[in-house]
Amino acid sequence: MAHRLGEAGSEGAAVRQRESSAMNALELRGVEKSFKKRRSEVVRALDSVSFTVGRGEVVGILGPNGSGKSTLVRVISTLVVPDAGSVRVFGVDAIRHPKTVQRSMNRVSVEASFFKKLSAMENLLYGAKLYGVTTREAKPRIKEILDNIGFDRKRASEPMEHLSRGMQQKIALARALLTSPVLMLLDEPTTGLDPRSKRDVQAFIRRIKAAHDSSILLCTHDMDEAEELCDRVGIMVDGRILALEEPEKLKRRYARDGHVPSLEETFMAATGYTVEEASA
């Protein structure tokens, strides 16, 4: 297990203790969320969403744009309060005790959420301090992580806006890993990346999976990515999770006339969307 730095007091310790027990890393039960738009229009973003992520498990959620994946990640990361249902992170109620669960998770989203004028190193040090990790503690960890992801350390002093999207996304993953989260929320981490950057980021996620003790929720519309990285894959459409199973079982569920479809065909059969439509 990685060094656990910046752990915040007894509540954080409680999460760590729970983490070591057999309970699920993440458990959602009947989560609902609607947003009011203009002219009294109501959009149902999450509709009775229930699923679990086991300890050390990687669960992928496949869904077209607008299916509710990002709202799901925002609800789990305590940025959006659901209208109904429960969210538990290692048994702790995330709605009632957001600060407690925030200590044990981190998130990488499709947009690189960085101060664009600051360097990668300055952004990483700032991100670490928000979790109580000092510069002295963070620097060796940053070096180690940057070396692991093949990021040229000399470029860490350049402003983020000078780095490519792929490099920015690697820094986003490094920032998340820096706080040693036991639950990682990855919201389309490879969307918009060139093929090489995408492969690098996916390889990094595989290394996190292998070397760290983190549970991962990965939202994506990349079928290969989901199949390769995830222990179980769910399909989400219009705020509902239609199925959540191991990739092979999921494909067999949509088998017709003895033909087991690919995950892409499974996705199309379940949602009615092509992959291109899903990512449009």
């Binding site: 297990m1 060094h3 656990r4 730095l5 910046g6 752990e7 915040a8 007091g9 007894s10 954080g12 310790a13 760590r16 040090l125 700032y126 670490a128 301090k129 928000l130 979790y131 109580g132 990790v133 000092t134």
Partner: peptide, 18 residues
């Protein structure tokens, strides 16, 4: 394996400086 647990006030102090 190494666990270093900081008191809450120290975590908040580090973040303030951040």
């Amino acid at each position: 394996m190494q666990e270093r647990i900081k008191p809450r006030w120290l975590v908040e102090l580090v973040a303030t400086w951040g």
